[in-house]
Design a protein around this nucleic acid. Structure first.
Lengths: 110, 110
DNA sequence: CACTTACGTAAGAAGGTGCTTACGCTTTGT
DNA sequence: ACAAAGCGTAAGCACCTTCTTACGTAAGTG
């Protein structure tokens, strides 16, 4: 999971993921979408994404076709889901504790 | 969202988030959980988490109490959710295209 | 008012990241 | 066989992170 998080922490890599989410694209086409950065730079980003298992690579002649592999984000997604849910449950338990406390105090007054 | 991703990209900060997910803890208690790192280092991590709105800070005398704020992860969670879902839909559309293609070819043979 | 507690902040060192330019490799046309 | 297309890789540079040590600060304590 560490690799996946570090991979998507970089904005350009998230943008690449969006590009190859619905379409399989060759490295050159991906690089062409970034006007402010060189092709080798994109090549390096693609390597990071590939090593994090966030994209698949397929060779077709001299070209290399990339495509998003969302399963690679599964662990991170689960981590967030769990964190989110369990924290809300904790808030819920707290609210109930508070509620009982209020009831007790009211009872003492009566 | 960028701040949130960068914040949780660091393993120690994810660990801190787990520590203060269910309990409100003072900075010192958090630092004490990390035997291999100094207290100021944890203080710096707490600042990153606070600026990313992933923890809340409350002062109590000389102490500062921290607690996870899961709402700060909402955008990232949504991003992953959307990415995941739309990619699966794309796979679904592709499978259907393939299915129609197979049907056409079978029809031509008959 | 000193002293202690519980912190944050500053400065600097060490290592990592992302970029560019230059080069190498593999496949495909001629 | 030779050239071109389409990439990845290497080296070096600028910048950013994370850590440590040293110091500063606000709130309780005698």
């Amino acid at each position: 999971m560490q690799d996946a998080i570090e991979a998507i922490a970089e904005p350009r890599r998230r943008e690449i993921l969006r590009l190859v989410r619905d379409d399989e694209l060759p490295a050159g086409a991906i690089a062409a979408h970034f006007g402010d950065v060189s092709r080798p730079a994109i090549s390096q980003h693609l390597r990071v994404l590939r090593e994090a298992a966030l994209v698949s690579e397929r060779r077709d002649g001299t070209r290399r076709l990339y495509r998003a592999r969302p399963e690679g984000l599964g662990d991170l997604r689960d981590f967030l889901e769990q964190f989110w849910d369990e924290r809300l449950e904790a808030l819920q338990r707290e609210a109930e504790r508070e509620e009982r406390k209020r009831r007790r105090e009211r009872g003492r007054r009566n």
